[in-house]
Amino acid sequence: MKISSEEVAKVARLSRLDLTQEKTEQYAAQLGDILGYMDKLAELDTTDVEPLYTPVGQVSVMRDDVVKKDYAREDILKNAPETDGAFFIVPRIV
């Protein structure tokens, strides 16, 4: 399986990563090897096999919708790169 540098660059953009040209080419070669290895799955006939996305059978465990205050605002904001004491601050959007 060949994967081009352009494809890697496109996926990197989708992933919000900025790769150097050198790294793009290195990843293209490595991902080509890895995807080539993965192509062996095509040998298996999986017609009508239900995909298994999680090993546990239970889905959507329900609980009562009650408001709980677990953490204080100032504690949560302590880990933020930039705040005004009440909100997270990000670069100007509009």
Binding site: I3, V11, M38, L41, T46, E50, P51
Partner: peptide, 20 residues
């Protein structure tokens, strides 16, 4: 890449089927 449009079925869904 394996989740992206055009490859999802070939990789991710296929892998989940083989997982079962």
């Amino acid at each position: 890449y394996v989740l992206s449009s055009g490859y999802y079925d070939a990789y991710y869904r296929k892998a989940a089927q083989v997982r079962r």
